[in-house]
């Protein structure tokens, strides 16, 4: 009965549409409206593009965005470079008996909150921390080194936080890669680097893409890690949004930043997909 079928469709569609509208579309419309207003000298709200203009005219704003985006891209790259061998080892080298166990092992740190993990790293890296203690004991250094509060420790923290979101799609797409494809390429005369570049990477490209999008977005939107591990130089774009909302009470500017973050990050992802000739729906399927 087509009528009953349609009813079922609506029944299952309603929560999805409600979710989309109430939790995603409406807040964004509100955000957009706020971002298009400024307060005039009388304290009234008037329509204006000044908030957006400020982003492009004030060097510190767009520089922060560029910096954030570049670090997010770097983090995504590093995350891939670090997690790929792990994923490859788990899926292709280890026997099935152990691969499940190792996958679980990868997941374990993510059962505690990001904050706790970051503090864990801080305890290890700080001047009076565990690493310095051992280095001093071993006589490798005479004076403790400050390993925290710089861009390297920040990127490390971001990569650490992101690894799970890269390794899971990589593992699942590598699992789909039949070993015999690799052997077939080998048999047809390909060397190992060629197999990697022409067979493995193209095959798992959808997995890489979906992992990269998630990692990129999460890193771009991260607030805790840059703040806690990056220390004094790590102005992150989300922090700037936070500052506009909380410290400066300038919601309009903050909303404009939020919207710009959405638009610009979408653009970067679109560009990335274009450059690698990828298709979003394929990557997310």
């Amino acid at each position: 009965m087509p009528y009953a079928g349609r009813l079922t469709l609506y029944f299952f569609l309603t929560p999805v549409l409600l979710w989309l509208f109430l939790l995603i579309v409406i807040p964004h419309i509100d955000l957009f409206v706020i971002s298009m207003q400024v307060e005039n000298d009388d304290g009234d709200m008037v329509w204006s593009l000044l908030n957006y203009q400020a982003f492009f005219e004030e060097k510190i704003y767009w520089m922060t965005f560029v910096r954030t985006a570049l670090y997010a891209i770097l983090t995504t790259l590093l995350t891939f470079i670090i997690t790929f061998p792990v994923a490859f080892y788990i899926t292709k080298v280890l026997s099935i008996k152990y691969s499940g166990f190792f996958t679980i092992l990868l997941l374990v740190p993510f059962w505690v909150s990001e904050l706790v993990r970051i503090y864990g790293w801080m305890i290890l890296l700080r001047e009076s921390g565990v690493f310095n203690h051992f280095l001093l004991q071993l006589g490798l250094i005479d004076v403790p080194i400050e390993m925290l509060y710089n861009d390297i420790s920040m990127v490390m923290g971001l990569v650490y936080t992101s690894m799970l979101f890269m390794v899971v799609p990589l593992i699942s797409s590598l699992e789909g890669l039949d070993d015999s494809l690799i052997e077939a390429a080998y048999d047809l005369g390909a060397s190992k680097p060629v197999i990697f570049a022409k067979i493995v990477i193209p095959y798992i490209l959808p997995g890489i893409t979906s992992g990269s999008i998630v990692v990129f977005m999460l890193t771009l939107g991260n607030y805790l890690t840059p703040n806690l591990m990056g220390g004094k130089n790590s102005l992150w774009f989300t922090e700037q949004i936070y500052n506009e909302f909380i410290a400066s009470f300038n919601w309009n500017q903050g909303a404009a930043f939020g919207f710009l973050l959405l638009v610009l990050s979408t653009f970067i992802i679109w560009l990335g997909l274009k450059l690698t000739r990828q298709n979003l729906s394929r990557a997310l399927s």
């Binding site: 039949d178 015999s180 494809l181 052997e183 077939a184 390429a185 048999d187 047809l188 005369g189 390909a190 060397s191 060629v194 022409k198 067979i199 193209p202 095959y203 490209l205």
Partner: peptide, 26 residues
């Protein structure tokens, strides 16, 4: 050269790319 049990054609390439794969290596 080996023909695999499940043939192991490269799914991300078309027919021509599959066949020329070995030639390109040469």
């Amino acid at each position: 050269n080996l023909i695999f049990q499940h043939l192991s054609l490269f799914p991300m390439m078309d027919v021509k790319e599959n066949i020329s794969f070995g030639l390109k290596r040469r």
